[in-house]
């Protein structure tokens, strides 16, 4: 597999949300607006890249039987770092994402990439994989957030473009499922050709 493929597969071919369907809890939970989706996506990207780097570096010294607990400790550390740093420097976004930042720990996307890719591949490839997957995740979350924000509150990235009430259901939980389903269907249509 060449480098470009490793990086780009996260966007369309193996997009974590639209194709692998990994990490759906934060996907459905935080995407009430485009900016929330983007923030969550970038936070996850950071954790993914950092944990992929560390896991790839230590893979040969970790005994097989304790690899999962080790990975979890590594991932949880980076999540806590992200949580603290966001709290200190982007408090507005942090208060919006709130509960979902600590939940990156149990995002199976992060664990999945550590186990399935970083623990078997070189450092460089693991960074590319983390970056590609993370940005693919951020892209999907931003897209879903944008769709829900446009339909639900008639604004995009917090900028109101019409003075009326949007379709409420898209801001609430059912809208997340509806929006995601249509986006997945759309992605299938595009990639099947």
């Amino acid at each position: 597999m060449n480098k470009w493929k490793i990086f780009s597969k996260g966007f369309i071919k193996e997009n974590p949300v639209f194709v692998l369907l990994l990490g759906l809890c934060p996907t459905l939970g935080v995407t009430t607006s485009a900016i929330n989706g983007l923030g969550m996506g970038l936070a996850t990207t950071f954790v993914l890249v950092m944990s992929n780097i560390v896991v790839s570096l230590v893979k040969s010294v970790i005994p097989n039987k304790v690899r999962i607990p080790s990975f979890i400790v590594i991932i949880a550390s980076f999540v806590t770092i992200v949580d603290l740093v966001m709290k200190a420097y982007v408090p507005a976004l942090h208060s919006q994402l709130g509960l979902f930042i600590p939940l990156i720990v149990v995002n199976c996307l992060v664990m999945g990439r550590a186990e399935a890719f970083a623990s078997k591949n070189s450092l460089g490839d693991s960074i590319l994989d983390g970056l590609g997957m993370g940005l693919g995740f951020a892209f999907a979350l931003t897209l879903l957030g944008a769709v829900r924000e446009i339909l639900g509150s008639l604004s995009i990235f917090g900028i109101q473009f019409a003075e009326a009430d949007g379709m409420l259901v898209f801001v609430l939980a059912p809208g997340a499922f509806l929006g995601l389903a249509y986006l997945i269907a759309l992605m299938r249509k595009i990639t099947d050709k």
């Binding site: 040969s60 010294v61 970790i62 005994p63 304790v66 590594i74």
Partner: peptide
Amino acid sequence: AKKESTLLNMVLTLFLVTAAA
């Protein structure tokens, strides 16, 4: 080659990982 999963190795690894974290 992976390190073997002996008890000492496992305990030591987890100790080091958590200490670093």
